[in-house]
Design a binder for these strands. Structure first.
Lengths: 222, 222
DNA sequence: CATATAGCTGACCGCTAGTCATTTCAAGGT
DNA sequence: ACCTTGAAATGACTAGCGGTCAGCTATATG
């Protein structure tokens, strides 16, 4: 007896409900990767899944709660991959490159990270928000542990590095979220500007500066 | 004879039209400071001004074009104040503090900067977007000039500093855009987390790391 | 087979950005 | 002083949004 809930069958047990919720999340992520944050509509999501719009609201209180959940999942997914990359010691540059590569490879993580605080968190119930922050805290700690050995830093330094990398990641990848522009239509100086904000070198160079800065500060202050 | 266009009088000359456009912008900024980006609606803006919604669209093509214009204005306003602060040489820490203080004092600048690339730029006609980028380029150059003498850097280093400060500013002030949370309702560890992302120390510490990093790199490479 | 429970539905609400046929105003020519 | 004319202003309208909830119906249980 399969406990999989077919479409248009009702989810009655807790397990079935969890499955349906996951099915919604999966469909939501696929749909999100197609159309992006702003064009993502609850009606279309429901149509894609083949359920009524109201049903979505049995599983998520708001559109933003879906995004918050997708964000959490992508945070865990990304950080697991990144953590796996940090088994050996490495230079801060390699560290930064691995971090960015793993983040950019996940189509969900960065677009949601960028919208987290000013959009997503504003329409989610407080307990859910707190829960999400706790997931975040746990992840930071987990990443900091491997960062400490990978970069040969103290745990406190590593925690500072990880938090700061998050901040830098948001700023440095901002340019990737701009509209797709046909280069032909742009004056040379604007093309140059856009090129100079290319997220990869921007992130890596400044990550190195920050990590080495953190390394030096504590070396002197001891 | 005053050339001021009273409400409900028609703007016929180019000058009168420019005046009306400015009046719309002023009202838009006041309204934006009241309700923020997401709650800002064109109908309410029109009501506030006492004109019909359609009239707004004679002066701006889209809601986002209004925001782009307010962003440009706030960029110029902020940078003029910041530039004025940079008449003497100073440490990178003082530099960073002055930069952030001027930015945070302007209620318009940071919220629009944060939304610029992933929201505002996506609904503005290309020529207007190019124009805005050119304003940005000119501002970066102007700030870089005074930065070079203020921090005793080369022009190339100063340009790198200015661009990077923009990136860091976006990342570091992200937390200020989260929902207003009543501290009492939060578990201690979440309160600590939020405190650890306080934008002011976050920005200043990392600005110093980056500026000193840039200073050292070129010192060695010469 | 009847009943009660609860998952599911979709019409509906109040709102949004943006459009455009129509109205209105006022300057310029006579 | 009046008329013509062009453009500024209008606001009803469209299509679509997130979210709600009274009513429908599938299904587990007695």
């Amino acid at each position: 007896m399969s406990s999989v809930v077919a479409i248009n069958q009702r989810a009655r047990t807790a397990e079935q409900k969890a499955q349906r919720r996951n099915a919604v999340l999966e469909a939501a992520e696929t749909y999100f990767l197609e159309v992006g944050y702003e064009a993502f509509s609850m009606s279309n999501l429901a149509k894609n899944i083949g359920i009524a719009k109201g049903t979505l609201y049995l599983y998520f209180e708001t559109r933003e709660e879906i995004f918050l959940t997708l964000y959490e999942q992508s945070l865990v997914r990304w950080s697991d991959i990144f953590i796996d990359d940090l088994r050996e010691t490495m230079t801060s540059q390699v560290y930064a490159r691995k971090l960015l590569t793993a983040a950019a490879a996940d189509g969900t993580f960065l677009p949601l990270l960028i919208r987290l605080e000013h959009l997503i968190e504003h329409n989610v119930a407080l307990p859910r928000l707190i829960q999400s922050k706790q997931v975040f805290i746990a992840r930071v700690e987990k990443i900091a542990k491997v960062t400490a050995s990978s970069l040969e830093l103290s745990e406190a330094q590593a925690t500072e590095v990880v938090k700061t990398m998050g901040v830098l990641l948001i700023g440095a990848t901002q340019g990737d979220q701009g509209p797709a522009l046909d280069e032909e239509d742009l004056p040379q100086e604007v093309q140059d500007l856009i090129a100079s904000f290319s997220s990869k070198p921007l992130f890596i160079k400044n990550a190195v500066r920050i990590i080495e800065g953190i390394r030096m500060e504590t070396a002197f202050s001891i």
